[in-house]
C-alpha cells in the first residue's frame, strides 16, 4: 500500500573537513506502509504503520575511528526492509596532516607520527605517488596513515628512478561495495634534499703545551654544502660521570674547506682540553640553528676521538764550571736532555735570584737549536734557568 521511507544520515558519500578532533555520525532509517493485500503483500491488511523507528547507528568518532556496514539484503526492496540498516556505509575519521616544511632527505620520515606514538594502518586507504607515468600506488607501507616512514622505506634505494623532481603524494579511500573512489583533500608535495654529508674522517690535534687547553680537531665529510645549507656540529666530552655536552658544545659552518683529497672539512676552534670526545653533525637548510638538546641529535651517528696533551718540556742542567778567577764572569752552565714535541727549537733565560722570590734578568731569551747548550759568561751568584720551546711552552 501507501509507502514512504527516508534516511537521515549525518554524512553521506563525500569528504568533510572538520574543525574538531571528533565527529558525530548517525544513520537513521524509517519506512512506513499500508500493508494491504490488495497490493500483493499478503500481510495484515489495511493498516498504515511506521517501521524502523529509532536511530540504527550512531557513534562519536575520534581519530582513526571507522565504521563499515555492507548491506546484502534485497535490492531493490520490494516489500519493506528486513534490515533497518539497509545501507552500505564505510567511513573513517582521520587527523589532518600536512607535508613537512622545508626539505627532507631520503632517511627522514615523510610525515610525523600521530601524537599517540602508534603506527596506524587504515583499511582501504592507499597512498599513491605521482610517478613518471602518472599516479601509482606506493610499493610499501601503502595503508600507513600518517605515512610516517622514509623515502627509503617506501621505495628503497632506487627511489630516484620512480619519479622526477619532488615527491607528490595523495591517498585514495575505497569501499568493497562501490566503485566510487575518494581522494585525499590535499596532494602533498614533499621537497627533497640530500641527507647530511657522509662522514669521511676525523683527525685530532693535541694541545700545544702539556698544560694548555687548546686542542682541536678536523672533521672531514664527503660532500660540500648546498648554498643555503649549513653544517651544525655538537661536541660531547667525557667527564668523570660520562659523556655530556662539552662546555662550548656547538660550531656551525656554512663554508667548508675543500681539502686536496676532495673531501670538505671544518676545523674546530683551538679551545679543547685533553680528553675523550664524541662529535655528531647534521645539516640544516635556511636560517636558525638546532639546539644541542634537540631530540634529533639522539639518533645521529657519533664519531669518537681523543685529544692528548703535548709532551711536557723538560731539561737537565748542571754547573760546568765556576768563575776561574775573581770577577772574570766566565762561569758556565750546561743544559742538556732538552725534550719537547718534535720539530721544536728552544730558548733559555737566565735570572739572578735575589732573596727568596725576587729575580732579575741576567741573560735575556736566547735561542738554541739542538737539545743541549752551554751558557757562558756567568758571574758568581745564585742563578735560575727557564726554558721555552718554539710554541711558547715553558719548563
Amino acid at each position: 500500500g501507501d509507502y514512504r521511507n527516508g534516511y537521515s544520515v549525518t554524512h553521506s558519500t563525500g569528504r568533510y573537513q572538520i574543525n574538531s578532533n571528533s565527529v558525530y555520525i548517525k544513520i537513521d532509517y524509517q519506512e512506513g506502509y499500508n500493508d494491504d493485500p490488495g497490493y500483493g503483500c499478503n500481510g495484515p491488511c489495511g493498516q498504515y504503520s511506521e517501521m524502523c523507528n529509532g536511530v540504527e547507528y550512531e557513534s562519536t568518532f575520534n581519530h582513526f575511528s571507522s565504521y563499515e556496514n555492507i548491506y546484502s539484503g534485497e535490492d531493490p526492496i520490494t516489500c519493506g526492509t528486513q534490515d533497518c540498516l539497509a545501507i552500505s556505509y564505510k567511513a573513517v575519521f582521520l587527523p589532518s596532516i600536512s607535508a613537512p616544511v622545508g626539505k627532507l632527505c631520503e632517511k627522514e620520515q615523510l610525515f610525523a607520527q600521530y601524537s599517540d606514538g602508534v603506527n596506524h594502518n587504515v583499511n582501504d586507504l592507499v597512498w599513491e605517488f605521482y610517478s613518471n607515468t602518472g599516479w601509482k600506488e606506493i610499493p610499501n607501507h601503502k595503508n600507513r596513515y600518517p605515512l610516517n616512514v622514509s623515502l627509503l622505506d617506501v621505495f628503497g634505494a632506487s627511489w630516484r628512478t620512480q619519479f622526477t623532481g619532488n615527491l607528490q603524494l595523495r591517498f585514495k579511500y575505497t569501499a568493497p561495495f562501490t566503485s566510487d573512489v575518494l581522494y585525499s583533500f590535499s596532494t602533498y608535495t614533499i621537497s627533497l634534499t640530500e641527507c647530511s654529508p657522509e662522514f669521511d674522517s676525523l683527525s685530532a690535534f693535541k694541545t700545544k703545551c702539556n698544560y694548555s687547553e687548546d686542542g682541536s680537531f678536523k672533521l672531514k665529510v664527503k660532500r660540500d654544502l648546498d648554498s643555503n645549507e649549513k653544517l651544525i656540529m655538537t661536541l660531547y666530552y667525557q667527564y668523570s660521570t660520562g659523556f655530556d655536552l662539552a662546555p662550548n658544545p656547538q660550531e656551525t659552518s656554512s663554508n667548508l674547506f675543500n681539502e686536496p683529497d676532495g673531501s670538505y672539512s671544518h676545523t674546530w676552534s683551538e679551545n679543547l682540553p685533553s680528553g675523550n670526545y664524541k662529535i655528531k653533525y647534521q645539516t640544516k637548510i635556511g636560517s636558525g640553528g638546532i639546539s644541542p638538546t634537540d631530540p634529533t641529535w639522539t639518533t645521529l651517528s657519533e664519531y669518537s676521538f681523543t685529544i692528548t696533551n703535548a709532551r711536557r718540556v723538560e731539561f737537565s742542567a748542571e754547573k760546568l764550571n765556576d768563575e776561574s778567577c775573581f770577577e772574570v764572569e766566565d762561569g758556565k752552565i750546561r743544559v742538556y736532555n732538552v725534550i719537547s714535541e718534535s720539530n721544536r727549537s728552544f730558548s733559555y733565560i737566565v735570572y739572578e735570584v735575589q732573596g727568596t722570590n725576587t729575580v732579575t734578568v741576567l741573560k735575556n731569551w736566547t735561542s738554541f737549536a739542538s737539545n743541549n747548550v752551554i751558557i757562558n759568561n756567568l758571574k758568581k751568584t745564585r742563578l735560575r734557568l727557564k726554558l721555552k720551546d718554539s710554541q711558547g711552552c715553558f719548563a
Binding site: 514512504r4 558519500t13 568533510y16 519506512e31 548491506y71 567511513a91
Partner: peptide, 17 residues
C-alpha cells in the same frame, strides 16, 4: 583539524505501487 571520508550506497527502495 580532521577529515572524514564516507562512501555509502543505498538499496533502491520502492515507493509503493
Amino acid at each position: 583539524q580532521s577529515e572524514l571520508y564516507v562512501l555509502s550506497v543505498r538499496p533502491q527502495n520502492i515507493t509503493g505501487p
